[in-house]
Structures are given as C-alpha cells and as structure tokens.
Nucleic acid binder design. Structure first.
Lengths: 252, 252
DNA sequence: GCATGTTTTGCCTGTTCATGCAAGAAACAG
DNA sequence: CTGTTTCTTGCATGAACAGGCAAAACATGC
C-alpha cells in the first residue's frame, strides 16, 4: 500500500461521504493510526481536507471553514471588536461589508432596531442580516469562492460599481503602516478596492495578530483608513503610526 | 460520530426545521444531553444558531417567519421530493435554482460527488451548496427580500441574462394546467421568467397542496414544464393533464 | 557487495481534547 | 411558592493527538 495510494483513497471517501475516521481508515488500510494521522496531517497542510478530532472532514464547509476553523481561534476578541465597531453606526447609513470572520461578527452585532442599507458579497454577512427587519440588504453576486466565503469576479465588481456607501467595513488580511491594507487573493483585493473607491470611509476591525502584517495584494494605503477598531492590548506604537496617518482609533 | 459531524447535522436540521431539541438530538446521536448542550453552546458562540431553553432555533432564518412556518409543515414530503428531483441531475450540468423551501431541500439533497454549476438567487440554496467542493456556485445578487429568501430586482435580472443553464429548478407557488406556473410576487415572477427563458428545461417539484392552485403572477405555461416531481399520492387526473402538456412525471 | 543516507512506518511518552457524571444554579410550569 | 426540567460548571477518564526515536524498506554512491 503506497502512501500516495492511501491519500487518493482518503480523498475519494471525503468526496463521497464528506468525512473520514482515523481509526476506520487505519483498519481498512492495514496500517497504524499514526500513519493515518500523518496522512491526514499532510493532506490538511495541502488544503485538501480539514482536520478534526477523530478524523477529517471535507474542506471549506461554509459555516465550518469560515466560522469554526478560523473563528475557533479568537471568538471572544472578535465579538468584542464587533460590538465596538457597530458603535460607529448611525441610523440611515449605507454600508459595504465584505468577507471575513470579523465582519461576520460585526454583522451579527448590528442591533435589530437600527435602519441601515447594507451591501455585501459575503454569504455569512448576508445570512446574519436576513433577520434584521430594518436592514435593507443588497447581495453582491458573482462567482462564489468557498475559501473566502465571498463572491468575487466581474459580476461582483459590476454590482459594486453601481453602488455607493457611507462606510466600508473592510475585512483585512494584513495591516501594516507602510504597505497599507493587503489581501491574500487577487480577485478578493479587486473587490475590496472597488468598495473602497465607492465608499465615504473605511472601517477596519482587527485582532492583534493582523497588526503589522502584510499579504501580497495591496488594497489601500494606511492613510485611507478612517476608523481602526483594535483590542485594548494592541501595541501602542503601531497604533500611533496609523493615527498619524489620519486613522481614528477605537478600543474594543 | 465526529463532533464536527454532529455540528453539521444540527446545522442541517436547523436549516430544514428551524429548531432543534436537545433531548431529541442526544438520543438521535447516541450521546449524552450534556454533549449536545455543549455542541449547541459552541454553535451559538459562533453565531450559527440561537440558544433557547430546551434546544435551539435558527439564528438567521433565511426564510423569515412566513417561510419557516411553512417549512415546518411538510419536511418529510419535501425531503422525499428532493431526493427524487436530484435523480434527474447529470454530472457536468448547469442549473438555475430559485427560492422556496422545496428548492432548499433539493440543494441539500445534491450529492457531494457530482460536478455541477449552479446559479441561484436564494441565500438558503447558496448556503446549502457552499460545502459541495465540486459545485461551482454562482450567486445572483440583488435586493434581498426577507419574505422570499431570494434576491430580486434589476441587478438579479441582469445577472440571469448573462447566464444559461441546462435545467431550471423552479420553486413554484401555484401550479395549474390552465394558468401554468404562477407566483405571489411580481418581482419574483420576473426573475423566474428570466431563468426560464435562459434554461433548457424547467423542473418543478411540488407537494400536493400546490397542485391545481394559482397565484396572481404568471411565470410560464404548463407546456414549459419538462419534469414534474410529485408525491405518490398526487391526484392522477391532474398529473395526466400536465403529462398531456409534455411534462414528464416523476414520483417521489 | 557494502556503506551511507533517506523515507516510511510503528511504537512510546507526555499532552490535549471530548465526553459523561455530579452538584449547584437558573428557568420553567403548575 | 414548589417541584421539575434544563442549564452551567468542575472534574475524572479514556480516546486522540504531536513529537521523538528506532527499525525496516528503499535508494544512492563507492
């Protein structure tokens, strides 16, 4: 039984069942569970599955990848950031909200009694807002990317181009004073740029681990940030840099 | 039974029924109620449901109150219809799927190992398909209507106009041989008409209570229906009428 | 053939995680 | 108000886990 052979069989079962159990695979392949765990670890590293306790599941289930995988990490922090971020909202405003777990937390934190117009390309944000009776929700369609949880592409850009918003809640992947706001994906960055262009101000809420990091694709310069929502424990020196670029700092 | 698996099943039942009971889940999963409560707590923390005494309810019912009321109605029937309807699918096909609880059930019933391209204006359908790795998902954006759970309007129509599909799964509000397929909402009907125009064939899955009823807005004539999926208990006379108009009948 | 280095695998060790149980708190019903 | 159900918290146990180590299988060079 070749290693590669096992990998293929694991992929097959994942495609069919959506999940695999480490112990079951071990007995089926006639190898130790350690070997199976190693296989799963490698496949997970290659992004072909998502490792869970006891086995693995198919990667990027919407609510699972966007919310469990990443958000298992710092749920409380993001919830706190979200609460502080919605404090910036004024009734009657129109917003762009793009993807990311922090933005989903913000969407959930939006109170039920505030009237808003929200345009989003994130299914997570959209679904969080479906039960807000006073929120007029505009879904920005396009090609859906499971890894991002958002729609991107020409259709999305065209939809954004027809809209304008007072604020843009930008889900940031990297945030650095010198390099500005950056994203990991080209198409994603494109949509963010379009939203930034058509909005009156950018709001970014980030956990500490995003501060002073950068991703390949540039979205906007640091001077474009109007409001920056950060944790109380964020390094003051970094914050001072952003402040000198015109950003208003808000602590969660 | 993986923890993640239970979470997924809970999410599924919430999407289908709008609520879950802790005790019922415990016996169904074969675990203690404490474990289920822990699951529910975690999912609630991630914003995927709202915890209530005795169980949990959907936090953001894609289908608002009106829709979730209906969805509790005939869950088993709709699941059976959905299973029969997905039997019509062929790998590589492209589909339009619009809104409605039956269509959401169909989306959930789509197997994980079939390659498809799906364009939908329903957030419920879209979110059901986000964890299908082989499904290329195109979200048709626009103004979101909570009562329908779908996007409608000029933006949606424009997006539909740029696409074509082999089949159109039409969520029907009324179905009558003389009046054809009808909808309750003008904007909704408009989108359905556009999808019908750009698709190679219409598939309709309906419970008995929709048969031989009509709503104000006309979507398509009875002769436009290629496949009609119905319950075994559907009145044969009505079915014969549709059959004479060229529809192929499939029993769930 | 022999020696050497690499890869794969299984086993061991300490650690982490999921689970069920028990006890007290809170919510509900009558 | 009282009893019951449900919930949270803490804790103990066993399963699953990562990392280190050594043996076996394999390839490579002399």
């Amino acid at each position: 039984m070749l290693t590669e052979e096992r990998h293929q069989l694991i992929r097959n079962q994942l495609a069919a069942d959506g999940k695999v159990l480490a112990g079951e695979l071990a007995s089926r392949f006639g190898v130790s569970e350690d070997t199976v765990r190693r296989d799963l670890r490698e496949l997970a590293k290659a992004g072909q599955l998502r490792r869970v306790y006891g086995g693995a599941v198919a990667s990027a289930p919407f609510a699972a990848a966007t919310l469990s995988q990443r958000s298992g990490h710092a749920v409380e922090e993001k919830t706190r950031l979200a609460k502080a971020a919605v404090g910036l909202l004024v009734a009657g405003q129109s917003l762009f909200i793009d993807g990311g777990t922090t933005n989903e937390a913000i969407a959930r934190a939006i109170p039920r009694d505030i009237e808003l117009t929200v345009a989003t390309n994130s299914l997570g944000v959209a679904s969080a807002l479906t039960d807000r009776p006073l929120v007029k929700l505009i879904v920005l369609g396009g090609r859906y990317v499971p890894d991002l949880g958002t729609c991107v592409g020409a259709d999305t850009l065209a939809a954004v181009a027809q809209l304008g918003a007072d604020l843009f809640f930008l889900g940031s992947c990297g945030l650095d004073v010198a390099r500005g706001v950056t994203a990991f994906d080209s198409a994603e960055a494109e949509v963010k740029r379009a939203m930034a262009k058509n909005s009156g101000g950018i709001v970014i809420a980030v956990t500490n681990d995003k501060l002073a990091t950068a991703a390949p694709y540039r979205v906007a310069g640091a001077e474009a940030i109007r409001h920056l929502v950060v944790e109380k424990t964020a390094p003051p020196a970094t914050l001072a840099d952003f402040q000198s670029q015109g950003a208003q700092i808000h602590f969660a």
